[in-house]
């Protein structure tokens, strides 16, 4: 197993972990988004709440979610470690800084990642923590099955302007993080060829803009709707 340890502690091995966890988290972004888009269904939140119940009780999903948390933690901790190691490897910085030799995002992935992590804390605290460990979420019953009314919780949360702003900052950070991270993950995997690299680039840009934008629509939609109700 020496080879495996050598590999995982090598610079390329560490980057590979970032790449694989990053892509895994990208796939989660898609799944999570598809679920959340059910908030737009005008059924008073039934579909969404049923979906939420399924996601929190299905054993397989529970199992996968452990992987997800591990992925997030691994990506974040490894990211912070690499960031620190790289800072040390660079030593001091230049008196003059320019950004025409590499994008701002690529040079600030650590900062963007930290912002995303901060956002995640707020987000998890608002939903996951309240759902799991408190009774703050109201209950609702569909077809005789009682479940937590997360739909209403979404509306409650997003009625607070500061929460919406935190979400928007988090999602902008995510978009920027993805704009570099998506293509970078493929490069780290060695997937680069003049024939299909343009496709990866293009998909990366599309993904990085579309996904956070769709996510951002939710708090914005709620905010607008709430405002209209007054």
């Amino acid at each position: 197993m020496r080879w495996l340890i050598d590999f995982l502690t090598s610079s390329i091995g560490k980057k590979l972990i970032m790449s694989l966890t990053g892509l895994f988290l990208c796939s989660f972004l898609v799944i999570h988004l598809i679920g959340n888009l059910q908030l737009f269904i005008p059924d008073g939140g039934e579909k969404f709440n049923v979906y939420a119940k399924f996601m929190t009780s299905n054993p397989l999903i529970k199992f996968i979610s452990v992987g997800l948390y591990a992925g997030i933690l691994l990506h974040a901790i490894q990211g912070i470690l690499i960031w620190m190691e790289n800072k040390k490897a660079k030593g001091s910085t230049y008196a003059v800084n320019t950004y025409d030799n590499g994008s701002w995002m690529s040079k600030n992935m650590g900062l963007l990642g930290t912002l995303i992590l901060f956002f995640l804390c707020v987000h998890m605290g608002d939903f996951w923590f309240k759902t799991k460990f408190t009774d703050q979420i109201p209950m609702v019953t569909y077809d005789g099955v009682e479940m937590k009314d997360l739909y209403t919780q979404v509306y409650t949360s997003f009625s607070k302007l500061w929460i919406v702003i935190v979400y928007l900052i988090g999602l902008v950070a995510l978009a920027l993080h993805l704009l570099h991270g998506f293509e970078s993950a493929f490069t780290t995997l060695g997937i680069r060829h003049k024939k299909y690299t343009p496709l990866i680039k293009l998909s990366g840009i599309a993904f990085s803009i579309t996904i956070p934008l769709l996510y951002a629509l939710i708090p914005l939609w709620v905010l607008v709707k709430n405002a209209a109700n007054y």
Partner: peptide, 29 residues
């Protein structure tokens, strides 16, 4: 340090060596 695919190396390389080499090395490794 560890490569994070910034690409500044390619831009500032006086011989304009491509970061395709880096992707290839990742693959080889």
């Amino acid at each position: 340090g560890k490569c994070s695919n910034v690409g500044a190396c390619e831009v500032d390389c006086p011989k304009e060596i491509s970061t395709d080499n880096i992707a290839a090395l990742n693959r080889y490794y």
